[in-house]
Write a protein that binds this DNA or RNA. Structure first.
Lengths: 341, 341
DNA sequence: AAGACTAGTGCAACCGTTTGCAAAGTCAAG
DNA sequence: CTTGACTTTGCAAACGGTTGCACTAGTCTT
C-alpha cells in the first residue's frame, strides 16, 4: 500500500480524475475504471493512468465517490465511555479489522447517556455503512430503527433479529459464587452498573440465580455511572450490609471499592473479599484483583467480523455469538471473616 | 437537538430534499436554504419545509453536502495505541468538544507504526477537515505535508510552525530526581520508549539534564513498544545495572517492571524504587505507583480547542501550548538500599 | 467474406446538496 | 404611477466521482 509521494505537485486545490484524464490522454471514465475495475482496461492504459495519478498526487474524493455509489467506506463504533478500560481493546480490534477491509472508523462516545447516543447514531448514519454499538444505552425500539437504516452489530446487548456478540457472565459468576461459598462466605453485595446496561442485567440475574442455588444471600446496591469514585462511595453501604464479600459491576468499580476500604483501614481480603468483572486492570491493582474475565478484544474481533461480513455479503445477519467467561482468582478473595455482625 | 422521529415513513431508499420540496410545494433550493440559511426565507416557508422534513424523516446526505461545499464536518484523531491508557481520556475530550461543535470524529490507531499512520492519515485526509495527531510516529516531513493539506494539531510532538500541545515532563522529572537524591539514590535506570516518540526524547533529555545537575548516574535501557510485557522483560537488565531506582517511560511499563520484580521476589520500594510516567493507572497498582502526572484529558481539551479554532476561523495557528507536570509520590519510591553492589 | 463476438474506450446521465444569479413580487418614495 | 430597493423564491450549474450504454476495431467462425 503506497503512501503520499513526496514529489507531488498537489496544490491547495485537489486534483481530480479530470486532471488525470487530461495528462494521460484518456476520458474520465477510463481514469475511474483504472482504479475501480482495471480488468476492463488494457494493461497499458491502466499503467499510464496510474502513473499520471501518482505524478499529480491524486487522492480520490471520498464524498464524491460516496455520493455516486452510495457506499461510504466508513463504519462507526459507539461506546458509552472510551475511558472505561473495557472498551479500548474492543475499539482497537474493530479499527484494525475495519481498516484492513478498507473501512475508516468513526468513534462515538455517548457518555453513558441514551440521548447522546441517539444523536451520535443519527448523525453518523448519514455517512457510515454500519454500526458496532458496544453496550448501547438506547432503548430497543431506537436500536431497531437504526438497524433498519444501517446494519448494526451489538456488543453486550441481546435483541432478537439483530447481529450481536454477547459476553456471557454466567460461567464466571457461577465460579465466583462457588469460590466464595467454598471459602465460607454466606452473604455478599453486588454493586450494580447502569440500569440500561444489558451486561448489568445479565450479571445481576446470573448472580442471583447462582447465589440462590448455592444458598448465599445477595444484597444489591445500585450505582449510577460505573466509576472508581462510585465504588469508593459505596463502601459505607457495603459495610453496613454486613456482607463478607463484594462483587462489583466492573474492575474500575472494584478498584474504587478497594481504595475506599483502604481509606477506612479495612483489609482485603482478610476483612472482606472483593471480586471485579472484565479483567481490565490485569494484575495491576493492590492487592491483585480477583475478577471475572471478559475478553473485550475477542468481542471486538467478533463484532468487526460480523459487521464486515454483512457489509460485503449484503445479507443481514441474526448471528448471536456468545463469549464465555471464567473466574480469575488473584489476591482479593479469601476466607470469610468469622465475626459476621 | 431533536432525535429520530418514531413516525417516520423512511423507506430503505432515503428521502432527499427533492421529496421535501414536492411535499412542501417549493423548490429544492428553498429546502436547502431552510436548513442552511433560514434567514433568507420567510418564517412561514421555513416552518412548512421543516414540518415536511420531519414528517418524512429527512436526514441530510453528508456526502452530497461535502461534495458541494468542500466541508466534511469530520475531524480525525490518530493515536499510536488506543489501548494505552494515556490516550482514551484525550480521545474522549476531543470527541466531546468536536461533537459539540458539530463535527464527527474518526479514530485512527497506528499500532505504533509510522507507515500505518501514513496510510491512515492519507486515507482519512479525503474526508476530514483537520487532524489531531497524538504522539505521532511519522517523520517531520510527512507531518508537514499532511498539514499542508489539512490543518494538523499535534500532541506531544514539537514541530515549529504547526499548532501543538506539549506535555512538558521536565518539571515532574526534576522533582523525581530531587526526590530520589533526597532518599539516597545514586544511580538509576531509565526505561525508554519508542525511538520515534517525542515524549521519550523529551523525557530522556530532561532526565539526563536533571540527573547531571544532581550528580546522579543514569543508565538508559531501550525498550521497543511500551508495554507491560516489555517492562517485565526489562528487569534482568535493571538488576544487573546495579541501580537502586527505575524511571519508566510510562505507567504501563512501570507496572510491568513491578510485576517482573515481584516474580523474582524483589521488594518495591525496599530493594528498588520505581517511578512511572503519565499517572494513568491512578493508585491502582500494587504498591501504589509513584509517577509523574500528565493530564492527557487536558491535552485533549487543548488540542480540540486549537483545531476547532483553526477550522472556524480559517486561519492557521502556530500555537504552542505547554502543559506542566509534577511528581506524585505514592508507595513505590523510598530510601535507597545500602548494599549497592 | 460476412456475421457474431469480444475487448477497450468514450459519452452522458446521475448521485443529493449548495449557491450565484435572476425573476417575480412588495412596498415606499418621488 | 413610476421607479428603485428589498425580500422571497426558483433556475441551473457546479462539486467529483461511477456506470449503463453505445461505438469502434479487431478476432473468430463458418
Amino acid at each position: 500500500m503506497s503512501v503520499v509521494t513526496g514529489n507531488s505537485k498537489a496544490s491547495t486545490t485537489s486534483v481530480t480524475i479530470g486532471d488525470i484524464a487530461r495528462v494521460a490522454g484518456v476520458s474520465r471514465s477510463t481514469v475511474s475504471r483504472a482504479f475501480s475495475r482495471p480488468e476492463l482496461l488494457s494493461a497499458e492504459t491502466v499503467q499510464r493512468v496510474k502513473a499520471a495519478a501518482a505524478q499529480l498526487g491524486y487522492v480520490a474524493n471520498h464524498a464524491a465517490r460516496a455520493l455516486s455509489t452510495g457506499r461510504f467506506g466508513n463504519v462507526a463504533v459507539v461506546v458509552p465511555d472510551i475511558a472505561n478500560p473495557f472498551f479500548p481493546p474492543l475499539v482497537r480490534r474493530v479499527q484494525t479489522l475495519a481498516d484492513a477491509a478498507g473501512f475508516a472508523v468513526f468513534l462515538g462516545d455517548s457518555d453513558e447517556i441514551a440521548d447522546r447516543e441517539a444523536n451520535l447514531t443519527s448523525r453518523l448514519s448519514a455517512q457510515v455503512e454500519g454500526f458496532v454499538l458496544a453496550a448501547p444505552r438506547l432503548d430497543e425500539q431506537r436500536i431497531r430503527e437504526l438497524d433498519a437504516t444501517r446494519p448494526v452489530v451489538l456488543v453486550n446487548r441481546d435483541i432478537s433479529g439483530l447481529a450481536r456478540v454477547l459476553i456471557d457472565p454466567s460461567g464466571g459468576l457461577d465460579e465466583a459464587v462457588a469460590h466464595l461459598q467454598r471459602h465460607g462466605h454466606r452473604s455478599l453485595v453486588y454493586l450494580s452498573g447502569p440500569r440500561e446496561s444489558w451486561s448489568d442485567q445479565q450479571r445481576r440475574a446470573a448472580l442471583l440465580s447462582a447465589a440462590k442455588r448455592a444458598g448465599l444471600e445477595v444484597t444489591i446496591q445500585e450505582l449510577g455511572r460505573p466509576s472508581s469514585a462510585a465504588g469508593r462511595d459505596a463502601v459505607g453501604g457495603i459495610l453496613s450490609s454486613g456482607a463478607t464479600a463484594v462483587i462489583a459491576f466492573d474492575d474500575v468499580v472494584a478498584q474504587g471499592v478497594m481504595a475506599g476500604l483502604a481509606l477506612r483501614g479495612i483489609d482485603v481480603p482478610r476483612d472482606i473479599s472483593v471480586i471485579g468483572c472484565d479483567d481490565t486492570l490485569a494484575s495491576g491493582t493492590h492487592p491483585a484483583l480477583t475478577t471475572i474475565s471478559a475478553a473485550s478484544a475477542a468481542a471486538g474481533d467478533a463484532a468487526a467480523e460480523l459487521l464486515l461480513a454483512v457489509l460485503s455479503s449484503g445479507e443481514r445477519s441474526e448471528a448471536r455469538v456468545a463469549i464465555a467467561t471464567h473466574l480469575v482468582v488473584r489476591a482479593t478473595s479469601d476466607k470469610a471473616r468469622d465475626d459476621i455482625s
